[in-house]
Design a binder for these strands. Structure first.
Lengths: 154, 154
DNA sequence: GTGCGACTTCAAGTCCACTTGAAGTCAAGC
DNA sequence: GCTTGACTTCAAGTGGACTTGAAGTCGCAC
């Protein structure tokens, strides 16, 4: 913690404050997601702002982007280090769209589940989702019902 | 597609209708997530209800459960093949809780992003989230801001 | 100037959820 | 009864996101 009051963070400090393992931070750097400067002896030193970039990476992962996609998204921002509001807005809107889709999908799963709780799904005689004729076949591939009467394995 | 009008599905038919690869179906069976019967010659035959169990597995994966967790969740249902409404309700409620948490988390990320779009985040002089003093440190580990002034790699 | 914890690189390992490939068998149509 | 596509098992491979381990160096406090 020797540099904690100075303007650069060691990898250990960054790890402690970002919640990432040092190994993960080196991996991110290798992928080009973050950057470091080096001491004369070759040790990494990070700007404090790297903490915010890591939060950014984490947010992106949270919405389902791979690290490669995060890097690509960052690539859409200009190389000079002060992207314009328009630059950033374009990236952010793409992500927001993705978040909205994910929320909608989760809500749909939740609603299906709610219906099952209401009717005691899995009890074959009562659930509205239960469809003994398997008419899901009419829709092509992909089952359309949440539950059925499959006996449990074992 | 030879058995398409009979009461059991081949693995190819199940794959086509569930949207899973045959290799994935064998893998699921190996994990105990689905079950099959065998023909005299050793080929798998599935009940139509397996389609719904696969939809169930897919829903569970969608909300972030690993296949092991799905199996564990199924293990909470009784071994006899008609779980009661209460049995199922308990499992479903656990999952619903998880979905709600995930939706809340996604909404939070979206709101942060919205704030950034509004102010032209990454442009250091204007964003309310930008915090040159890095006061995130006060909260222990984990950065609290989405963005910063890290120059892009490359 | 020495001790020691924090750092370095590089290669290999891990976990998850599958996929691929090889070598062989089954089953339905002709 | 033969052909052919769909099936079988088993082992190994893949890709993403890291982690672990070995062997060595740095840097700060004393």
């Amino acid at each position: 913690m020797s540099l904690s009051t100075r303007d650069r963070l060691t990898i250990g400090e960054l790890a402690a404050r970002s919640g990432n393992a040092t190994s993960a931070l080196r991996y991110y750097e290798e992928l080009g997601l973050i950057q470091s400067e080096r001491t004369a002896g070759g040790q990494r030193r990070y700007r404090r702002a790297t903490l915010r970039w890591l939060a950014f990476v984490r947010a992106a992962q949270r919405i389902g982007l791979s690290l490669g996609e995060v890097r690509d998204a960052l690539a859409h921002l200009p190389v000079d280090h002060v992207p314009s509001a328009a630059d950033w807005s374009r990236v952010a809107r793409t992500w927001q769209h993705r978040i909205d889709e994910q929320i909608a999908e989760l809500q749909q799963v939740r609603d299906q589940l709610t219906g099952c709780v209401g009717c005691g799904c899995l009890s074959l005689t009562r659930c509205g989702l239960y469809n003994p004729e398997d008419t899901a076949a009419r829709r092509g591939s992909g089952a359309r019902y949440l539950l059925g009467d499959e006996p449990l394995a074992r």
